[in-house]
């Protein structure tokens, strides 16, 4: 049986105490759902000396309405999927959350955890013994990136489903330390570096996700993976559009997942859509622009070549769904579930 390494376990009374322990301890990490961290610890990819538990903190589990929506980072993905308000107002986020891993893992995993999901790579997400056989890689215990041996940075892939959806919706996140807090746009939380993929410091705890008012914005999320469950995305397209009075696009934001070490904003495609109506031609053009922004590398399931080819198709599906096309049959084939 795979077993966890030894560690200290700390159960704080509140976020402030959690932040204090994080700041005071060398090599401390927070644990919420544990679905990302614990496998990594069993494979000795991450070996924190201290775990600071957040699961029991009720203040992280609240969903509150304001001008938009504030979701506690500790809300489980299942709770999120069962929230009718989210399903209707932030459909892209709902579709993303509903496709994370499996029902069991969604019962455990939190929104905050999915946002901070460790980047993934076929050379890294392996047992210690396996990694020893390739003399490790730069993300953990080694010196080289085996995906591209000339690369100076780690190319591990951002594999979070909810982040592209949240970025497309213009979400912000709140980070808290023992001394204060800051709120940043979610896309600024990420960096295109497989090792230092978050701009969050070790002492910061992601506490809340803030969504702008969803009224008038339609959003969708399309995920590509080998199987209908379990698998991380090999490509995903999140798109949010606010339509103007005449049905033309007022504002669009398209974000790709799993094609870099961070969610990729397709600015050129988003800008192209402004003031245009979603005709077949416009969709095709925008989808092609999305494909140009994707630079998948060979470290996930499926070949990078095929994943890149699939971008335009998946982006087109996303835009067609936003236009109001009935995409249920196509969804059924790709997602293998009703969304």
């Amino acid at each position: 049986m795979m077993r966890l390494p030894r560690f200290h376990y700390y159960r704080p009374r509140d976020i402030r105490e959690a932040a204090l322990v994080l700041a005071g301890e060398e090599n401390a990490m927070v644990i919420a759902g544990g679905t990302d961290l614990l496998p990594n610890m069993k494979r000795r990819q991450q070996t924190p000396r201290t775990l600071v538990a957040l699961r029991h903190l009720d203040e992280l589990k609240r969903v509150t309405n304001g001008s938009g929506l504030v979701i506690g980072a500790g809300v489980t993905l299942t709770d999120l999927v069962q929230d009718r308000g989210i399903k209707s107002a932030y459909r892209g986020l709902w579709q993303a959350a509903a496709q994370v891993a499996t029902p069991h893992l969604r019962n455990m995993g939190t929104l905050g955890g999915n946002i901070c999901l460790d980047t993934r790579c076929n050379y890294y997400d392996q047992n210690h013994e396996w990694r020893k056989a390739i003399d490790f890689c730069m993300k953990k215990d080694g010196a080289i990136c085996w995906v591209s041996t000339g690369s100076k940075t780690c190319l591990a892939t951002s594999s979070t489903d909810t982040a592209p959806a949240l970025v497309s919706l213009g979400a912000e996140v709140e980070l808290e330390t023992a001394h204060g807090q800051r709120t940043i746009p979610l896309h600024e939380l990420y960096r295109d570096d497989g090792i230092h993929y978050l701009t969050r410091s070790n002492e910061e705890i992601l506490t809340r996700i803030i969504l702008p008012d969803g009224a008038g914005t339609r959003s969708v999320y399309w995920k590509l993976r080998r199987r209908g469950s379990f698998d991380f995305p090999v490509l995903s397209v999140a798109a949010a559009i606010r339509f103007g009075a005449g049905g033309a696009v007022d504002e669009a934001r398209i974000v790709l997942g799993a094609v870099a070490s961070q969610p990729v904003l397709c600015d050129s495609a988003s800008e192209f859509l402004n003031d245009r109506s979603l005709t077949d031609e416009v969709i095709e053009e925008a989808a092609a622009l999305c494909a140009r922004a994707a630079k998948p590398v060979k470290n996930t399931d499926f070949s990078p070549h095929w994943r890149k080819r699939a971008v335009a198709r998946l982006a087109a599906y996303a835009l067609q769904e936003l236009r109001g096309d009935d995409m249920r049959a196509t969804r059924e084939k790709i997602a293998r579930q009703a969304l």
Binding site: N122, R227, S229, D231, D301, R336
Partner: peptide, 14 residues
């Protein structure tokens, strides 16, 4: 891919 995740075994949805 010596793992249950990356060795792809069809799920109930597949």
């Amino acid at each position: 891919e010596p793992s249950m995740l990356e060795y792809k075994s069809p799920t109930s949805t597949d």
